[in-house]
Amino acid sequence: MLIDINANTGHWPFRQTSCNSCRQLVARMDESGTDLSVVSNMNGIFYKNTQAANEELNEELKSDRSFNNRLIPFAIINPVYAGWKDDLDTCLNKMGIKGIRLYPLYHDYDLTDPSCVELVRYARDKGLIVALTLRMVDSRSRSWMDITAEWNLRDVIPIMKEVPDARYFILNIAGDIRLSQADTDLMIKSDTLMDTSGRSTSGLGNLISTYGAGKFAFGTHTPILDYLTGLLRIESLSERVADETIKDLLRAGNARRILGI
């Protein structure tokens, strides 16, 4: 079984992307043998009223029965926008989301803003995963209208300190991944999955020896990044570093555990 914990639908404003609808995504999944994908709608990164994007995704998911069996929706929530709690309740109770994605850099708030901490606690209490994306695109090749900031791995630590018992996805791991020993220990103790789409996960073998095989899962960051590099990082691990049991954890086992499926 193969689960992609980092897929997106919707429109990326600054470049044409070729695989950004549920239909195209599922076709891509079929082609590459991906059984399930965690998906949210990128429009929510840019809409001020992010709920419109969650609604769009929900409508798209409802438009074809087969999507239900293949796509696990996450909502995009902006905790400094009016009505976010209503939105989250709606997403949870009517749209069946399993987690939320936050984009503080795009929505322009600090990760430790009290409203954000409140949201993460609320998500924890509701059993939702909280997904943080270190960057959407490389800021070097971004559009001049896009944001310039990217996170390093250490930038997500403050919220994990605030709410250590939430469950996290950390997605598209790029940039500096070095953590202090204390932060490394915090990460190890946390219930976190890092996806394999980001360029800083190329040394996956090393990362597994630092954090354990239970901390990683297949992710694509599609449609921004190519569909297969994240898988290649797992499948090409030598037997010595990761046997089939470990690879299965990375392919789906860890994701199934944290998603409860």
């Binding site: 059984d35 087969s66 069946g96 409860g260």
Partner: peptide
């Protein structure tokens, strides 16, 4: 588990080049 995911395994597993 997920309400939306019942029947997941009813559908044939995906078949692709890989």
């Amino acid at each position: 588990g997920i309400p939306g995911l019942t029947g997941c395994l009813d559908s044939a597993p995906p078949a692709g080049p890989f």
